[in-house]
Amino acid sequence: MPTIDVNIERCKGCERCIDACPQEILGMSQKLNNKGYKFAVMVDEPRCIGCSQCAIACPDVAIEVYVEGAHYQFFQY
């Protein structure tokens, strides 16, 4: 199952990943990280298709994408 790992201390809560995700499965945390930002969280993990759109859009290299077997790829990045 594809999934992502958000490095919450790198995240600045800009929400670009939320807009980038075609599955609309990302949201913002209620908690703040150590820098005082809300951070991106996965709200519906099973629906992640491992497309990396969120990570490509992230200005702070805060997202890593993991896959096992088949996954979607919209673009060759």
């Binding site: 999934t3 201390e9 790198r10 600045k12 809560g13 800009c14 929400e15 670009r16 930002y37 491992g50 990396s52 990570a55 490509i56 859009a57 992230c58 200005p59 702070d60 290299v61 997202i63 890593e64 994408v65 993991y66 896959v67 096992e68 996954h71 990045y77």
Partner: peptide, 27 residues
Amino acid sequence: MKKIFASTKGLTDRPTHYCPGCTHGVI
């Protein structure tokens, strides 16, 4: 699990000082 997207060796690990959402980071 295979990591298909991760930070590059072309950047250091240091978090940037850019404002949230500033695309300097993407560039």
